[in-house]
Design a protein around this nucleic acid. Structure first.
Lengths: 226, 226
DNA sequence: ATTCACTCTGAATAGTTGTTCAGTCCTTGC
DNA sequence: GCAAGGACTGAACAACTATTCAGAGTGAAT
């Protein structure tokens, strides 16, 4: 007798896997990576602890996939925003703004994904995540350089530094603690975006214009819809 | 009978405490915070594990004090460099360069102090450490603003962002891996310092001048002496 | 010399979680 | 229905280290 997976079963298995990942994501969003423990996640996903191991070989794999998932979402959002911009400088501004917005709107999750201590080794996954996002930013910087809007520079290092600045200023331990207030939030996004653009060499006046253009409009959208 | 501590004993106790801290620092410099475990540190300091607890109530306290110590050293170096500079912009450039140099010259330790996962809670100590360094940078930015060299801005946020950029670019997971090469090291320091200065609004040409002035000379000194 | 306070030792303890696996339940194919 | 493959359960296990503490050691007071 040959056991064959019914479509229904396949669907259920996939759903369960998603449920576990979603549970992990919720836990991380609420309590940071520290809250992503097998037993609680299993409870949240309505399965037993052992079941988690039928879907993920280890906690490290679970968290790695969580990081990858969140990272994919963010990368897509960055690309969407940048591709919709009229020119390379606008695209860069849009990309930076998007990172800032995403980071801010889910600070706890962002902190967990980026830097929070985890008891298992997820450095490879974190590295990949950062590499992707940084690569995207580097590409946008490069486009602006090639368009003559920015001076030539080490775009990879610049992109890395920009991300570091954004993250530290928005979710790091020294980040202002009132960033839930939409007004403060908007100000913070504008400020860090301005810093970032100036850092790569956008002229101050032009940077201010780009920042206002890129944050005021999408900001309200972002705060309403996804 | 009243037992009184001889001067000699007091000295020995202090020496032992220093030895334990030094052992912890060495361990962190070699293997990151993960290597700062009670038993190995005790061995390195030539004491038994239990003795560590006569000097530090817990591992968290030990690491907190290690962080504070390293932080004090760095702050002193920043102040020394900045105070020796001729003007506020130079002082800012010197401060930023110093952070970059210090960070780079002890990358593993810096990573441990700043962001490496630790199994005990040292967030308060890390927060204090960052607050001090960021405060110093903020002060220097403020001085440059008041001197009319920089546009008005949120100096605290700017300082935080600058540190984030430096750290991410120099010791983060995306940092170039060949930073032991003095030439690459110098280039990296120059690049990130330039980014940082431009970010707060230093004009490009002037920034380049400051960067060269602040890195080329002290760099060689730093690589030779402490 | 002797006592006593204080310090040091390091093996044993304890608490925390990720991981396993024997038994149970469900679903498939006949 | 009913056998058998696969999935699920959750209590038990394992491993790792911070922490403790009873006993040994050290040196100050008399």
């Amino acid at each position: 007798m040959v056991y064959r997976r019914t479509h229904q079963v396949v669907k259920r298995l996939a759903a369960r896997r998603s449920a576990i990942l979603a549970a992990a994501r919720e836990a991380a969003a609420e309590g940071g990576m520290a809250a992503v423990q097998i037993a609680p996640v299993a409870v949240r996903a309505n399965v037993a602890a052992g079941t988690v191991y039928r879907y993920f070989p280890s906690k490290a794999d679970l968290i790695s996939e969580l990081i990858a998932e969140v990272s994919r979402d963010e990368l897509a959002a960055i690309r969407r925003a940048a591709d919709a911009a009229p020119g390379p400088s606008s695209a860069l501004a849009a990309a930076v703004t998007t990172v800032a917005l995403h980071t801010l709107s889910q600070r706890r999750l962002a902190w967990g994904i980026l830097a929070e201590p985890v008891d298992v080794d997820v450095s490879a996954s974190r590295l990949a995540s950062r590499r992707e996002i940084a690569g995207e930013i580097a590409t946008r910087i490069d486009a602006a350089v090639r368009a003559g809007h920015l001076p030539a520079q080490d775009t990879a290092l610049a992109a890395t530094a920009l991300l570091g600045a954004l993250h530290e200023a928005l979710v790091g331990p020294l980040a202002p603690d009132n960033l839930d207030d939409p007004v403060k939030m908007r100000d913070a996004v504008q400020t860090v975006t301005l810093l970032a653009l100036r850092a790569v060499g956008v002229m101050d006046a032009r940077a201010r214009g780009l920042v206002v253009q890129q944050t005021l409009l999408p900001m309200t959208k972002a705060l309403v819809g996804a």
